[in-house]
Design a protein around this nucleic acid. Sequence first.
DNA 1: TTGAAAGCGTTACCAG
DNA 2: CTGGTAACGCTTTCAA
Lengths: 340, 340
Amino acid sequence: MEKNRPVSLKDLAKELGVSISTVSRALKNSPEIGAELKKRIKKLAKERNYRPNPFAMSLLKNSPRIIGILVPDIVTHFYASIISGITDIARANNYSVIISSSYEQYELEKQSLEDFINLRVEGIIACLAQETTDYSHFEELVNQNIPTVFFDRICLTDKFSSVITDNAESAQKATQHLLETGSKRVAFIGGGNHLEIVKQRKHGYLQALREKNIPIEKELVFCKKIGFDYGYEGACKLLSLPQPPDAILAMNDSLAFGAMKAIKKHNLRIPEDVSLIGYTDELHSNYVDPALTSMTHQTYKMGEESCKLLLRHIRGNEKPKHITIPALLTIRESSIKKGD
Amino acid sequence: MEKNRPVSLKDLAKELGVSISTVSRALKNSPEIGAELKKRIKKLAKERNYRPNPFAMSLLKNSPRIIGILVPDIVTHFYASIISGITDIARANNYSVIISSSYEQYELEKQSLEDFINLRVEGIIACLAQETTDYSHFEELVNQNIPTVFFDRICLTDKFSSVITDNAESAQKATQHLLETGSKRVAFIGGGNHLEIVKQRKHGYLQALREKNIPIEKELVFCKKIGFDYGYEGACKLLSLPQPPDAILAMNDSLAFGAMKAIKKHNLRIPEDVSLIGYTDELHSNYVDPALTSMTHQTYKMGEESCKLLLRHIRGNEKPKHITIPALLTIRESSIKKGD
DNA sequence: TTGAAAGCGTTACCAG
DNA sequence: CTGGTAACGCTTTCAA
């Protein structure tokens, strides 16, 4: 029968008739302990299934080896995959992670941060909620001396490290690809213009057009909100133009799938009549027909880098560092016009 | 300037010239403390931003208010959504969660469990890895007195509570729906026959046929492995039969999307020529064309129930309990034949 | 109404 | 080589 309370050093010491210090030292392989005694102690520890009490350790060192992750949600593939990258690196370094979702709400984000501070996490990796425009709750982390790294949606870059994707460059690359594979008139479907990410990707799109000396037409840019329905609406609008586009770059996965549905409803072929590129993860792009050419975020890698960066901050007092991880163009069926 | 070390009761006590016990009591609203003194103590605590040290508390009570979640992975929507349900309930009860992925590997699963025990989590919610066939590492949890709840892939039901979906019933419902909406010959695409989940869903499918006195044809059942490619392969095989089916039930999302691709490649219309039902989450089903009629797992609810169950076990010593959460039929475009 | 002291499990320092 | 003791922050007796 096991006792309810876990075995402690004291228990082992008593049983062997030695002091607690001796047992502690023996289990850490201190060279000061007699070889024979050491062996006996280790044997008993294994027998009794001794496990060091992490609370005592944390109390002593004030470091629970836990880091907090704060994301808008955990269900979106993008975040889930990043979390996956983070936790794998954390685990490899003997850290556990605690995950909290803001559900895009400012109040929940603030509360989560409070919880993390109360828990005394050693560091935090966070992605801002859409609602958040005031960052004072994050500044508090500086006072509390809790290293923090932001990813994707970032802020206070002078104080915190960050990991992001190359929004402008990736949109530019995507547009270039369309122009180089038979498309002449490329349209852009984005989200709300106030979002940094929208501005940057649109900028990359426009940049690619300028490069090729293609005149910019305002009607070919549809920016309203992010979401499947808006992708559908946007594509319908674009395809109803007197001079409709023969290619669409959708800056988000739901927008892209919405646009795809619209193109089909208009009885147009992809990519023959209208090419389409989105930003998606591997899975979804292959599920649809035709398979969707996409810019793919290196999400797992973003997670890994975020965590590595954080661990460096935890270990030493480094200056904020900013990393950009490029998105990759994965060519599938929806972009290359056959006639090419 | 903040000190590096967080404020402790001792600090407050010294500053006010009272004893630690007094401060402790005042902050817990003990009625023994003078109203005026109590007010002063609370005021200072707020000023100094005092936060109780969780390590000291855990050391004292041996309960860190942390529960461990062990899943095959966190990227699959099914698991992510369940985790979401778990964490929300946990948080509402002042618990934090730590998530670990087995990546379907036995060794990693075992290691994660060890980590949880070492961390002294108060309880565990787990879904078995596909590789796992030996359950001794879970039996150890009984010795360690760590309450555990399984979901979806479960084991040792005499010792542990569980939360599952109604595999047989849901497949039966799906098949019934097909038969009631104009389909005559329903085929089934499943995964490896050794998996419990496959057996159960196939059983439900067959049950629905028997109900309607429809003869069972072995050629209409394709069970090989779970995955997009196998869905594609299976559907191709089925549609090449001398008497092909006019409806397919795919027992998994990737199988369903693979089948959908195959049906289209065969230039058949969905649902006019071949109806299709899958098991998916909301999102994916709407992205494809036509939108996929599906059995939808109530994943978030499964998470919630798992966590509630676990909390009951943590609080008192309840007997194992088994909960079944039904999947819901969500009718979209891929199932109802127009002629009906 | 308040204070002192023990104890939770561990490490580290100082003695022997 | 080994043992005793203080310390980490907090709660909880027991005394005053």
